[in-house]
Amino acid sequence: MSHGAEARRALEPVVAALNSIVLGKDRQVRLAVSCLLARGHLLIEDLPGVGKTTLAQALARVLGLSYQRIQFTSDLLPADVLGVSVYDREHGRFEFHKGPVFTQLLLADEVNRATPKAQSALLEAMEERQVTVDGQTHALPDPFFVVATQNPSYQLGTYPLPESQLDRFLMRIELGYPAAALERELLRGRDRRGLLAELKPQLPASALAQLQQYVAPVHVAEPLLDYVQALVEHSRASGHFDAGLSPRAAIALLRAAQAWALLHGRAGVLPEDVQAVVRAVAGHRLQRRAAVDGSADADLDELLLAAVAVP
């Protein structure tokens, strides 16, 4: 069986289980799973109460990952995230007490409510996949997956993440309000937290690591590289954005597209796969230029995707 087919067979139940909890958000669910496959971290940005936390918890349960949650507040300290060395009287030495970051799936809730100092402690751990305290390095578990949620930055009491740290997240997705019919179902149906508790892991413990191995070999044809490069070039030269996509962003775009293709059982990446992930991958990396050209309302799809021909 090909990798694609194997991945699809393994992950379809995962996607189905997630969809049973988070209603009507198939696209976001698949993006989240792809993000996980590509070993990226996920940022969910939306208003409170649209199901950010529910999605993160469901992911942990369905994938059978160990799970920790940190509620970010303005008085959170780096030690509250990473852990702290405590003097052990009995043995006469310092003992490192691991913080909540030592888990497979970490939900960093409302990450933009904490001070930049606490934020950067988490974000550095995300990048390095290890924690160094008092000169001692402690490896984080594998897989290590951070789902951070943040409220839109125009809300009160937020410290917006700087662009360099936004870059640490492979994808940023928005959930949005559910459709009316689904919301009715939500109102009628059982409490989501109760459903969550009943959720069974859909994937054997070792399977996720195996599937992650399959992402990099997903075939990328020359015309597809042309396409990715054309997109990146357009983001730099079109003048719609303050700064274009970086090479790191281009790699992220390709990796995410590979994961998306794998999730859909393909052995190679199609232009459609790139298009499916480009908003999630590039949206938080591109700063729209102050609108001098009357394109204030045009969104990323219009400014980037529609402007670049599929080769």
Partner: peptide, 9 residues
Amino acid sequence: RGQAEGPVD
């Protein structure tokens, strides 16, 4: 075919 339209779409 739109210039930005992939073959599957």
